[in-house]
Nucleic acid binder design. Sequence first.
DNA 1: TTGACCACTCATACGGCGTAAGTTTACGGT
DNA 2: ACCGTAAACTTACGCCGTATGAGTGGTCAA
Lengths: 218, 218
Amino acid sequence: MSGQEVEGAARGRRVGLTRSRVLDAALEIIDRDGLAALSMRRLGAALGVEAMTIYHYVPNKDALLDGVLEEVFRQSYSRRLRSGSWQEQLRSYAHPLVDQLREHPGIVPLMVQRPALTSQTLGMMEQGLEVLHAAGFPLPRALQMIHALIGLAIGHVVAGGADDSEDRLGHLAQEDLSTFPLVGRAVQDAGGSHLPEPFETALDAMIRGFEADLSTSA
Amino acid sequence: MSGQEVEGAARGRRVGLTRSRVLDAALEIIDRDGLAALSMRRLGAALGVEAMTIYHYVPNKDALLDGVLEEVFRQSYSRRLRSGSWQEQLRSYAHPLVDQLREHPGIVPLMVQRPALTSQTLGMMEQGLEVLHAAGFPLPRALQMIHALIGLAIGHVVAGGADDSEDRLGHLAQEDLSTFPLVGRAVQDAGGSHLPEPFETALDAMIRGFEADLSTSA
DNA sequence: TTGACCACTCATACGGCGTAAGTTTACGGT
DNA sequence: ACCGTAAACTTACGCCGTATGAGTGGTCAA
């Protein structure tokens, strides 16, 4: 009882870290305080560990970020898509994507910043290509469509899908409403009517466009 | 000739800086070496000035980044859209956006990271809303469409529009082609056939979708 | 002409960042 | 009981953004 181990941080004390636990903690920080708040030292602190310890589970911070990204989409795109028309399949393909982005808006910058051609993202693309190729789209066209779909999801989260977007837009309403009247009214009306599902309608529009495209070339 | 002023950096020496010149230099660094390479010290060096000098033209780095973003879209969205059907107007609305993004891919992360509800971006939105509102779309719906359009542009630049995307995808082709055959073939075929204009077709698909939407509700 | 003001620039310093290098501890297998 | 090694820590370096304050030179009033 000499009180020597009171201060944590015993040098060789095992803490039971795991790559997965590290990634989860990182995602938690990103979700709570944003991507900029994620530093190796803060992550270490959250795990009860010094920063350098993390480097035993991840080669560097970029790899950590890639790992977080991969983790986020792992569950969504490991299982098979349910069957149905290609339109339905495409919808069920896009939904987990936008759901995850809405749940973790902080990772959107990651998707944009990192090349992110990990096996996970490639797997996502492959899965989408299967659906569209089977539906009769030429592969390069199908690839464009996947890009468009991902872009649509990102755009929706960035520009309007994040839950605080109404707040942000509504916040500055006072002064700029007069300069940009339509924007103001659009926000106001949207808040009132509460559209059924914004992403849904945009997705449907795009799918209808694809339909026309398919019937033209087929 | 005592050789006292040999080392640059005379203390009160005017250099002829301007907020605009600062923003231009910042954009140049972003274009050449990427967003991560832009630091106040590097920017200062590029301008022949110490880092702190920049703070006389910009309150902090975030404001600098917002300024760059604003600069990029200033020219594109200061003039009126040319007249025509709303479809044509929408196309002419989207083009400068995607053109600028393709020319300055480094600013895409900025669009995603910063709230970017500057008067510039609001002006962009207002302009788009005018077109769609005049075409008969309800304002909240029109706002969604603008979001979708912006998202589409971003997605295209991020996922496939940047000129090096073929390189990036083609690079890892060797090993992963067998694991993700469709992705490989899609890239290969796309490289061969050189589609006329990838963004064009995606944009058209979305517009067709919007058309169907309009005729339904009208 | 002089002198005061002020716009502009620089120097210094602080805390935080990613991470390279090396050190210490304790667990698992012999 | 021993030891190799995995897991943790310590220290240090060169970056970063920026707060603070001091120096400098052009402008303009007196």
